[in-house]
Simulated scan of single mutants.
Amino acid sequence: MPVISAPQAFNQDDLYVDLEGIFEHPLFLKCEGFNFAGSIKLKAATEMVEAAERDGRLTPDSILVESSSGNLGVALSMIAANKGYRFVCVTDSRCNLATRMMMEALGSQVHIVTEPDPVGGLLGARIGHVHELCESDDRYVWLNQYANPSNGTAHYRRTAPAIARQFPDLEVLFVGAGTTGTLMGCARYFREWHRPVRIVAVDAIGSVTFGGAPGRRMIPGLGTSRRPPLLDESYVDDVVRVAEADTVRACHRLARRGFLFGGSTGTVVSGAMAWLARQEERELTAVAIAPDLGERYLETIYQTAWVEDLYGDDVLDSVPDSRPLSIPSQAA
């Protein structure tokens, strides 16, 4: 029986969903949303805060500040509340309402940026606001998830070894690309492993992470409007880019089988299935990482009017209904 005194001490790290019965190809989905922060970002947040404490950057009167599209903000809000730090999350208008309310419920301040930077977009505007706060008061400590090596270290130490324990014959790993902390941490671990593993990064169309053309992105989580400093493409074997409409379809397809996942998961699953469909070899032992669950997306991805307004009235027409139940007949 787990007994904890700090919320960050608990994380279910060994839960997988077998997607073969829902999609066309075998794929094991590693579920990272079963902790008190509700996402994989708990690992990075914990590692970055603890590293800052060891280095002496964080003191009792420090004010944590971070730019986040949502999930890291929730994780840092939770840790800050537990440890007694003040925390300011700088986000933008794409951040889900439920996510903002969670951060505020945990005692954090949420600053919402609405005007994009002419060059760096909303992300650039968020980072600019973080710099302004740090220049205004030396108590602010910016962990900088975009360049902080502890972001990747968390997944090198925890996420990748957990996958390796469960799948000693792993051949392909699909990882969504945001800050690329998860991607780089896992890729570096498997580069040193006893057997080769293909690392496939999944990105959103409209993201510039891997050199794509910038474009509108309405679903927070994956993708960036500037190249992440943590990214080293030499560790990535392939990149799959996913349209947001396909993200929505994958989320609804999972939901119609009882699995409510977040937008980043829908992107990763859609990209993984597209990549697997192009392979002519035998079936591969493949794992994809699901960063979060779907409750925070009820007003967006799972809200019909929101989806149809952004992606068209027919965006969900191709999503298959769930398999009909077989109800045994009762004896007369």
Rank of each mutant, 00 (worst) to 15 (best):
P2R: 10
V3I: 14
S5G: 08
A6R: 15
A6K: 15
Y16T: 01
G21E: 15
K30I: 09
G33C: 11
F34A: 12
K41I: 12
A45M: 04
A45W: 07
E47W: 05
E53A: 01
D55V: 01
P60G: 00
D61R: 04
S69K: 09
K83A: 08
R86L: 10
F87N: 03
V88K: 11
S93F: 02
C95M: 07
N96I: 00
T99I: 15
L106R: 03
S108Y: 06
G124E: 03
D138W: 00
V141F: 09
W142A: 01
A160S: 14
F167P: 12
P168R: 03
D169S: 14
L170E: 05
L170W: 06
C186A: 05
C186Q: 03
P196F: 10
G215W: 13
M218C: 14
S225G: 07
R226E: 05
P229G: 05
P229Y: 11
E233M: 10
D237S: 12
D238M: 02
R256P: 01
G258Q: 11
T267Q: 08
V268Y: 02
S270C: 08
A272V: 10
A272W: 07
E283W: 09
A288S: 13
L293W: 00
R296T: 14
L310M: 07
V315P: 09
S322K: 07
L325V: 12
I327E: 00
S329K: 11
A331G: 12
